[in-house]
Design a protein around this nucleic acid. Sequence first.
RNA 1: GCCCGGAUGGCGGAACAGGCAGACGCGAUGGUCUCAAAAACCAUUGGCCGCAAGGCCGUGCGGGUUCGAGUCCCGCUCCGGGCACCA
Length: 809
Amino acid sequence: MADPYDPQAVEAKWQRRWEEQGAYQVDNDDPRPSTYVLCMYPYPSGPAHQGHVRNYTFGDLLVRQRTMQGHAVLSPIGFDSFGLPAENAAIKTGVHPREFTDARIGELQSSLRRLGASYDWRREIRSHDPRYMRWNQLIFQRFLDAGLAYRKKAPVNWCPGCQTVLANEQVLADGTCERSGDLVERRDLEQWFFRITAYADELLDALDAVDWPERVKVMQRNWIGRSEGAEFQLQVDGTGEQITVFTTRPDTGFGMTFVVLAPEHPLVDVIVDDEHRPAVEEFREMVRRQSDLERQAGKQGVFTGAHAVNPFNGKRVPVYVADYVLMTYGTGAIMAVPAEDQRDWEFAVEHGLDIVRTVQPPEGWEGEAWTGDGPRINSEWLDGIVGTAEAKARAVEWLETQGIGKRTVNYRLRDWLLSRQRYWGCPIPVVYCPVDGIVKVPEDQLPVLLPDDVEFLPTGESPLRRHEGFLRTTCPVCGGPAERETDTMDTFVDSSWYFLRFCDPWTDAGPVDAEAARRWMPVDQYIGGIEHAILHLLYARFYTRALGDVGLAPAEIREPFSRLFTQGMIRMEGSKMSKSKGNLISPERYFDTVGADSLRLFHLFVGPPADDFDWSAQTDEMIEGCHRFLGRVWRLAQWPDAHAREPSAEDVSLEKAVHRLIDKVSSDFERWAYNTAVAACMELVNDAYRYVQSAAGPRRATLDFAVDSLLLLLAPMAPHLAAELWERRHPGEPSVHEQPWPVADPSMLATDTQTMVVQVNGKVRDRLEVPTSISEDDAVAAALASPRLAGVEPKRVVARPPRLVNFVV
RNA sequence: GCCCGGAUGGCGGAACAGGCAGACGCGAUGGUCUCAAAAACCAUUGGCCGCAAGGCCGUGCGGGUUCGAGUCCCGCUCCGGGCACCA
C-alpha cells in the first residue's frame, strides 16, 4: 500500500524545486504567446491573511493553467510598501518604518511561497525601494512640466489636536480624528494635485470597451459623474457684477425664483449690502467651522440683500448664501428652481420664497418638487413642450443667441490631491526658493531619499518638517538657501504604474521600457478586491494615459487592465475581515496541518469567487473535507490493482465521464466557476471509487487515463499534490505543470441515453431512460406507454426530445 | 434619497439558454472493519402524509406571462454594497 498523504513533505519538496528551477520565470524574448496575469500587489502587513490566500490562489490557478496552455505567462509580484501603519508602528515602538516594513515583507513572502504561488521573483518591486522611488519622482516632475501636476490651496481636514492634515480615510464617520478624537476642521492649505479631470471624458468613455465587472464600471461612471447642462450669467441688480450659474435644467429657467451662492463664493463679499453683511459674515464663519457631516445636516442660509435678474423673464430675484451649494462643484452658484428641484423647494419653503411651476406635474402631485417630464407652463416660448430633452435644447439655444450662456459639461470627479504630511512615503521632489519659486530637484539627484535619523513622535506632524538636514537645502537654480518640500506622495501613486514597471523592472533608462511594455501590456487578467473598484483602478487608468502622453510609456497603451476580476470579501460574522478588528485567521496553521493544497482547494470550492463569504464555525470542517478529498485522490492515483482487458461498458462510461470533466473544468475556469469545477472533480473521484471497487475491478488503461487527466486538471488547483503524484506515476518525464492542458475528445462527450422527464400539466409523472437521438414521435409514444400515465388523454402535447414530454389534459 | 447586488434544505452552495429543484461539500443518522477508538469504506439525509406503492407541499412575500417559472414581467419585504445637498 502507498504511503499516506503527507502534505508538509510534498509541499516543501515542490516549493523548493520550483524555486531552484525558476519554474515561473519568464523572459521578455520568450517565443510563446504572451499572457500577463496580475494580482493586486499587497500592502505588507505581516503574514498573509485569508483574503490574500483567496486572491493569490485565483491568480496562481490562472498562471499555471495558461502556462499549460502554452503561453509565456508574466506573473510578477511586489509589495505596496509605503503607508501609514509602518509609521504608526514607529511612533509606538520606535522601530524605523523601513526595518518594520522589510520584516513584514519577509513574513508575507514566506506565506506566499508556502501557498505555492508561482511568481517570477526576479521582477519583485517594492514601493519604498530607492530604484522605484527614483522613477516615481521623475514621473511627478514630468507631470509637473506637462501641467498635469500643480499646487493650489484646497480645503483639507485639519486636526487641531494632532496639528496636522488628515487624509479623508483618517476622519471617522462622526467627523472626529481617528487618533485624537478631536473634531476635525476644514482649513485651506497649499496642496499638490494631479489633473485627473483632464482625462474625465476619456476615462468615462473608455469604460465601455473593457471587460470589467459591470458594477465596477458603474461605480467608476458614478464617481466621474458627468452631467450635461448649461452655464449662464446673471446680472446682479444695481452693480456691474455677474453671477455665473451651472444647471442641468436650463429648460426650467422661467421658474427661477432665487439665486444661491456657496458660502465660499468670492462674489459674496462684493454683492452683500451693509444691512445684511453681519449676518452673512456670521453664517460664513459658522459654515467654515463645520465638518462635512454637520454641513449635510440641514439647509441653512441667509439673504445677501442683493438681487439678480432672471434673464428668462426679466424678474428680480433675491440672492442667498446657503450651505447646500458647494463651491467645489459647477460654478459654486445656482439658479434655484424650487418647483423642479427638491433641495430648492425645501429652502424656499423654509424662507418663504416664491415657487412657480414650469412643468405641469401629474394629477394630485403637490407639496414637493416635480422633476419628471410634463408640459411646460409659465414659460412663454417653451409653453406646451412636453419633452425635457427638447425643452433643454431650446433653452440652451436661446441662452446662446442672447450671448449670456453656453452648453457645458460638469464632472463630479475632482483632481487628485496627492500630498500627504507623512514620513513613510515617496518624497515630492521639489524645493521652494524665495527667488525662483517651485524648483524641481535636478534629475541626476533623484531619488530624494528619506533621512533615517528622524524621531517619530506622537504629534501627528511629519518628522520631515522638523529635520533640518532634510528641510534646509540650496536652490538648484540660484544656489541660494531653499526649503525642501516635506510632503510625500499618496501611496496610490506607487500603485498607479507598478504593473508597467513589472514588464522590465531592471531598465535604468526610464520608468517604463517601451518594448517590454508593448510586449506585455495591457494586463490580460487583473485580480483583486472590490474595495479598489474606484480609487486604485481609476488612478491606474489615469496614470497609464498620462505616462503615454508625457512620453514615458508607449502612448498607444491607454487601458492598463483589459480584463478585471474582483473577488468577494471574506467576512467574519458579517464584518469585513481586517487586522484592526483582530479577526484574522492565519493560513499558516492550515499549512502546518492539512497543507496549502487543501486550503487552496477550499477557497476555490466554498462558493463563487466573486461572492463574499462568511468565515464561520463550519469553515474548518469544510477545509477538512477538502483535505479528505485530496486524500482520496492520493490513494486513487496509487491504486494497486488493475487489469489489462478489452474495454467494457463500464470502462467506456468512466472514460466518457473523464472527457466531460475535462470539458467542464476547462469551461468553468473561463467563467470563474471554480466551485463547480472542484465539485465536478469530486464527482469523478466518487465515480472512480465505485469503478475500482466494482466486481470486475478497474481496467489499467481506463484507470490511468482517468487519474492522469484528473491530475492535469488539478495541477492549477492543488499544484503540489498533482506534481508529486504525476512524478510518481511518470518518473523521468516532464512534470505535470509542463504538460499540455488536456482537451476533451468531442466524440466522447455525447452520451447514448439520457433521462427523459414525462410531465402531465407540467408535473413530473415519470422518468424514462431514452436514446439521446430519440425522435419526437418515439418520445411521445414512449411517454404514453408509461404505466404511470394510464388513462391520460392529452389535449395537447409539448415534446422537447430527448429532455422532456409534457401532456396537457 | 439615488444606483447596483442578493434571498434556494440544519449549513456553504448547484441548476450556464424557461424544461428532473437541492449537484458537490459540511453536518447528522445507520452500517462495515476493529478488542476498542481514530482513519477509511458503504448507505440514508428538503418538509408533510403513508406499512408500502405512492401522493401532496416546497426556491423571501403578493400578483402575472407560459404547456411548464428558482430562472421572465409587475408590485413589495428584508439583507449587503456604492454614492450621497453634485444643481
